[in-house]
Structure formats: structure tokens, C-alpha cells
Amino acid sequence: MRTQVAIVGGGPAGLLLSHLLHLQGVDSVVLERRSQEYVQQRVRAGVLEQGTMDLLREAGVGERMDREGDVHNGVHLQFDDERLHIPFTELTGRAISVYGQQEVVKDLNERRRADGGKVYFEVSDLSVHDVTTEQPHVRFTHDGVEHELRADFVAGCDGFHGVCRETIPDGIRKVYERVYPFGWLGILATVGPSSDELIYANHANGFALHSMRSATLSRFYLQCEPDEPLEQWPDERIWAELRTRLGAPGWKLEEGPIVDKGVTAMRSFVAEPMRYGRLFLAGDSAHIVPPTGAKGLNLAVSDVDRLAESIVDFYRTGSSTGLDTYSAACLERVWRVQHFSWWMTSITHRFGGPDAEFDRRLQRSQFDYLRTSKAAETTLAENYVGMPKR
């Protein structure tokens, strides 16, 4: 098999990259180890930055997002029972939209099928070879048949557990990592949202987040131990903790059947460089951020937007400038996002240890500063809605 760009990974990053290349006449093949049903059903991120929304619209895959997504012009921060609204649009002129990652994947899959895109699900035995030459290739098995896919470039969009990052030798690949001493218990409930905006709550019992997926589906998160057994969180305890941590004067939490729950560990991870020869990493294969800042999907979209532009420029003009600067340009944004996600995590979560009370007083001070400083509010707002493309 032969193509111009071999894309390893059929999640939002890989599918969007394939679509963006197709719009500019560049051929690609997408290889995904999971089934299409699995990729389209797994519940992941749900907040889209302004830049992500704009790109999906420009690429012709934003119609359902605009119809069904829920645009938000701000967010609530809460310390104990005091709630503060950060008005994104008023401060920055930009907004966010709540629209699930699985919905983005469905839209992209539908468009790739309509355009005749080559997307192979349930591939196995995948390996990447010769990326330091002008003829890299990917070997894989599909439907019991072994294949070799030759390409000009390989895009590693295969997530944290994929094979592409490991293709970069240890002596060249540098990894930076931070593991947080807590996790998030994620809950999906068939009940309408109790708030017009997301609520990030810092409570003595721990962090809580009120989010939403639709008019009849709400998403909640509770700080917990990273290895917390789900058996210790029956529905009654979950609702009791949500009422306590999200409680505020005059506000009532709507409750309903819980249809999904799971614990996610909290970590930060960056692999450098994001390019090795003709292999380019994008999305979770190169970086993981704590979900506190809602940045994972948006950072992946930013990566593939830049990568698509660089590849198209190479084919149109012969210039490799975009490809040569891809890693450095992406990493500049990656580290800005890492800092914001760390900061959001540090001001909203309960930290244990001998400095716990000191940390909580610092968090109180930061909350008061946000409440009294437009400059502080603006800094939070412009990072949350997404920094403009550079």
C-alpha cells in the first residue's frame, strides 16, 4: 500500500488530520487498533475552546456541534460555599462549547466515510519503521492479512499507550512527568444540569466539578484517591458528596440515575521532541494534561492543525520550514497549557500532608484575588477559552 501520510490512531486527532489533509488534496490512510464503535462511544473530554470550534466550522464538520453543542460564556469558581463567575466573553470576546469528544469523533468519521477516506479499524501488530529515511512505512494486520503501508510521512496520533512515541530512541526522547496524589471519580447521570455554567468547587472535603453533556445528561467529578475502588462509591455517597462540595446558598443540585462511573488518575506528561525524522507526534502520544483545564482534546486539535498546514506547505512549495519548526512551535503551546492546567489543579484541589492548611490558605488568597482583580480574571479567562493561534 502507498499513501502520502500514514496516520496511526483513529481518534479525534487522527481523523481530523486526515480530513484537513483531504481538504487540501493530500492523501492519507488512518490506522486504529480499536473498533469504530469503541472509539465513538468512549466518554472523554467535553469542552471545546474557541479555536477548536472555529477550526471545525472552517473544515465543514461543525454543523452538528453548532446545533447540539452548548455554548458557554463563562465559568463558576467556588471556594466552600462562595461562588464567583468568570465572564469569558466579556473579558476576551471568546467562548467555549460543551460538546463531547465522542460526538466530534462521530462527525469526523461520518465525513471521512462520505469523502471516501481510508480508515482501518481493529488493526493489530502495528509497527513503524524507517522514519529517518524518505520512505518510512507502517506494518500492520487487518482482517487476518498482513500489510505494509509506505508513506512520505507518519503521524503518531495513537495516544499515550501507542507505539509511535516509543519509536523515538531513548537517547533522543526526553520525558517530563508529574503524577498527582489524587484522582477524579467521573460520573455520568441522566439528569439536566443544575447550573448554566460549569462549576469548579474547592471544598474541605476535596474538589468537585459540575459539567453537562446535554439538556438531559450531566457530568460530575469528585476528587478521590487515584486507586479508589468503585465499590466504595455507591450512588448515595456520590450524591451526598456532590451536595456537600457544590453546595451554595440558594442553589439546589438536581439528582438522577447514574449511568456511568470511573476513576481517572491525574498526571502531566510531555515527550520531547514531537518530531523524529519523518515521524510527527500529535495529541496524547506526546502530552497528557490534568483534565482540570479542559485542554487535552483542544491541544490535540492545535497539534494537527499545525501539522496539516506544514505538510500541505511542503507539497505545495517544497518548503520544509513548517515541518522543521513543528516540534518547537507545538511545545511552546504545550507548556503554556501544562502550566495553566497545573495552576487550575493547584487552586481547586485538596492537598494533604503537613502543609495542607498552609496550601488551603494560599488557595483562599488566590480566590480572593480573582474576586477583586480584573487582570487576574482575564488571565484565567484567556487561558481557558484558548490562546489565539500563533
Results as ranks from 00 to 15, higher is better:
Val289Ser: 08
Phe314Cys: 09
Ser194Phe: 02
Phe340Tyr: 09
Ile7Asn: 06
Gln363Ile: 04
Ser365Val: 15
Cys164His: 00
Ala248His: 03
Thr167Val: 13
Gly93Thr: 01
Ser218Arg: 06
Ala300Ile: 03
Ile86Glu: 01
Leu20Cys: 10
Glu225Leu: 10
His349Gln: 10
Gly116Trp: 08
Thr348Leu: 11
Pro169Thr: 08
Leu23Cys: 11
Pro12Phe: 05
Ser28Thr: 07
Leu55Met: 12
Val105Asp: 04
Arg361Gly: 09
Tyr326Gly: 00
Gln363Leu: 04
Ser97Ala: 15
Leu299Gly: 04
His76Trp: 15
Glu148Phe: 03
Trp233Lys: 02
Gln232Cys: 12
Pro388Lys: 09
Glu32Phe: 04
Asp115His: 05
Tyr369Pro: 05
Asn73Gly: 15
Val259Cys: 11
Glu357Thr: 13
Gly100Val: 00
Phe358Cys: 12
Arg83Asn: 08
Val163Trp: 01
Val105Lys: 03
Glu82Ile: 10
Gly293Tyr: 00
Leu281Gln: 01
Asp324His: 06
Leu222Pro: 02
Ala282Leu: 05
Gln4Asp: 13
Lys261Trp: 08
Glu236Arg: 12
Arg34Pro: 07
Pro87Gln: 03
Pro226Tyr: 04
Thr92Asn: 04
Glu309Ser: 11
Arg219Met: 09
Asp80His: 12
Leu362Gln: 12
His210Trp: 02
Glu134Val: 12
Asp152Cys: 07
Gly250Ala: 08
Gln232Trp: 08
Arg243Lys: 12
Ala189Leu: 09
Leu222Ser: 06
Arg2Gln: 14
Gly100Leu: 08
Leu15Ser: 06
Gln366Val: 15
Thr348Ala: 09
Arg267Asp: 11
Val105Ile: 15
Glu357Ser: 14
Pro136Ala: 08
Asp66His: 11
Arg245Met: 12
Leu246Val: 06
Asn298Asp: 07
Asp27Leu: 03
Ala151Val: 10
Glu134Ile: 11
Met344Phe: 03
Asp227Cys: 07
Gln50Pro: 02
Glu103Asn: 13
Leu222Glu: 03
Met344Gly: 02
Val385Met: 02
Tyr200Ile: 07
Gly283Tyr: 00
Met266Asn: 12
Arg350His: 14
Ser97Ile: 07
Met212Ile: 05
Ser320Trp: 06
Val263Asp: 05
His19Gly: 01
Glu63Ala: 15
Leu108Cys: 06
Val179Thr: 14
Leu31Gly: 04
Ile311Tyr: 01
Tyr176Asn: 11
Glu82Met: 13
Phe88Trp: 02
Gln40Arg: 14
Tyr120Thr: 03
Glu177Asn: 12
Val270Ile: 12
Ser327Met: 02
Val259Ser: 10
Glu146Cys: 13
Ala271Lys: 02
Glu231Cys: 10
Thr216Ala: 15
Thr378Cys: 10
Val29Ser: 07
Met266Glu: 11
Leu209Met: 13
Arg316Met: 10
Ile96Trp: 00
Val163Asp: 02
Asp368Leu: 15
Gly11Asn: 04
Val104Pro: 01
